[in-house]
Write a protein that binds this DNA or RNA. Structure first.
Lengths: 330, 330
DNA sequence: CTGTTAGCGCATTCAA
DNA sequence: TTGAATGCGCTAACAG
């Protein structure tokens, strides 16, 4: 059996509650006794039992990090670095991370069992049906997604898309297409909006035929690209809603004998692990995933401390990473 | 306040202890009362409080998954899919995953605070200094690493290396080099052993100059490759201890004007996310990371149930994934 | 400033 | 088969 607060108390000749106070730092007491007790606790190797403490205080010192199942099968998942940053930030404040995957849209066990003081929800496609019930029990911060009245941190999808499209325009392109796996995802719709705005502002030809949606699953790129290649004249550039689509598009173009970027330039979004390694290296929009995790964790910390009234939406700005697929040299 | 066992008891007209029995399934009781109580509990939306239960039973229903810090900064980390498989396996058994990163070789807080019933340690480089203290408190399973007297699941590094080298030999190569970031890692030493064995058995020229170790950090590939390129004649093939080294080697060779695989064939190890996407696509040795996580989780489950006396080492066999960097067509 | 008392919610004796 | 009593280890009122 591990050493308890009573052992320490006995050894120090005081009561358990005094030990509790000495260790927690709450309430006033003679500094010298406090120090003496702390020293004894250290010597005895005392470790507060998390369950006992949780039972008494109703705080767990744990936060749930739940990832939408839709994002996990993808290797090189976008969220790995986010998770790492979250863990680092939370660990520094003495919190633990309870990691889980959101399956079948059932609200996470960790929350219903009262195992966590707050929740970070990662995924672009988590709806109110799941967020609202959670939010009634613990503070919630959405990552890479947002909903009215809920705290969230997201990348600047609209701004990032503008960067991409502006860049393509600066290369002299006018017929610029947009492709996405789906427009069901909020992020992708926002990127489309950025595309649309920029095209319109810059007086580019806006054409239904230049906007193609794929579908979930392996044939997504195929479907979207077939539509684009049916256009004439062909678009001279493609802005894809994420790297995955962009890379798929490059492969497809190559197969059909179109050269990238000479005939068709391509820009992606995410700056995932693959981007620098594909051929040609992919120009893409980056939002720092580590920053995203860190900021989200910090916001949740505030919420759990009862600070920060009123939901806030934190938008992280994006940058364009120029590589070769857009037509930039070297 | 959430509904407790007492609420259910009151509603059912029985005592709290009866409810506890009904819900836990332990101890005999009239099946109809059991059902009646369970039904009421369901209606009331009763959720056992994890802390109370943990305090009473000393089981947490949590397992710690800790990843060596050395592996986390790498994007596209090898362990993402392992983590996912672990979570899925454990979740199915009602366990929660407490995720953390092993920093500065300090034994994880989650364990010292008694928050977990068992621990999965991921990382090739975790030593006895950290494993042994942990093992005294809870069952431990090592993943991708092994130590005497400790349960572990690993890929068959030796066998995998043999596969790679045999394949290169079958392409007609004789001067086959081996490179690794470091030989401090057990996995890499095992891969070297597999290389050595195969070369010797097949009567290939074994040459100190064909074995190059890099160093931790960005210059690793550079250092190892310089050594190889100083040889004459040059090796005609390179077996790299992991994909990272293999890809680096390909870039280096390309820069120096050597064509892969025509002049120098390259085979990696891991089959990470990048392998199919680099140019030429990398031939590499795969050990299923999902399987690794699943098997490790299952073993830990056994251990936590008190089954499985005596440490066991579970070796997962590898397969060679043939792509183009080895000289295979298409 | 410190000790006493009384739970937190559940599981588990032991009686009935 | 069921209920009452007790304790898991800690915190928090309230006295002293």
């Amino acid at each position: 059996m591990a050493v308890t607060i009573r052992d320490v108390a006995r050894r120090a000749g005081v009561s358990p509650s005094t030990v509790s106070r000495a260790l927690s730092g709450k309430g006033r007491m003679r500094p010298e006794t406090r120090e003496r007790i702390r020293k004894i606790a250290r010597e005895l190797g005392f470790r507060p039992n998390a369950h006992a403490r949780g039972l008494a205080t109703k705080v767990t010192q744990c936060v749930g990090v739940v990832i939408d199942a839709r994002h996990v099968p993808l290797e090189g998942s976008f969220y790995g670095p986010v998770l790492e940053a979250i863990e680092a930030t939370l660990d520094a404040e003495g919190y633990h991370v309870v990691f889980s995957v959101l399956r079948k849209h059932r609200i996470p066990k960790s929350v219903v069992e009262g195992r966590v003081d707050g929740v970070l929800l990662l995924g672009t496609d988590i709806g109110e049906d799941i967020v609202m019930p959670l939010k009634e029990r613990v503070p919630v911060v959405l990552v890479d997604n947002h909903l009215p009245q809920v705290d969230a941190v997201v990348g600047d999808n609209v701004g990032g898309a503008r960067l991409a499209v502006e860049h393509l325009i600066s290369h002299g392109h006018r017929r610029i297409a947009f492709i996405a796996e789906t427009l069901a995802d909020l992020s992708f719709r926002e990127r489309l909006a950025g595309y649309l705005q920029t095209m319109e502002e810059r007086g580019m030809p806006l054409d239904e035929g230049l906007i193609a949606e794929g579908e979930r699953g392996p044939w997504s790129v195929e479907k979207a690209m077939r539509k684009l290649l049916a256009q004439s004249p062909l678009p001279t550039a493609i802005f894809a809603a994420n790297d995955h689509m962009a890379i798929g598009a490059m492969r497809f173009l190559e197969e059909k004998g179109h050269r990238v970027p000479e005939e068709v330039a391509v820009v992606g979004f995410d700056d995932g692990d693959l981007a620098p390694h594909v051929v040609p290296p992919l120009t893409t929009v980056r939002v720092s995933r580590g920053e995203m995790g860190k900021v989200a964790a910090k916001r949740l910390l505030e919420l759990m401390r009862g600070e920060g009234a009123g939901a806030q939406l934190i938008v992280l700005s994006c940058e364009l990473v120029r590589r070769r697929s857009c037509g930039c040299p070297n």
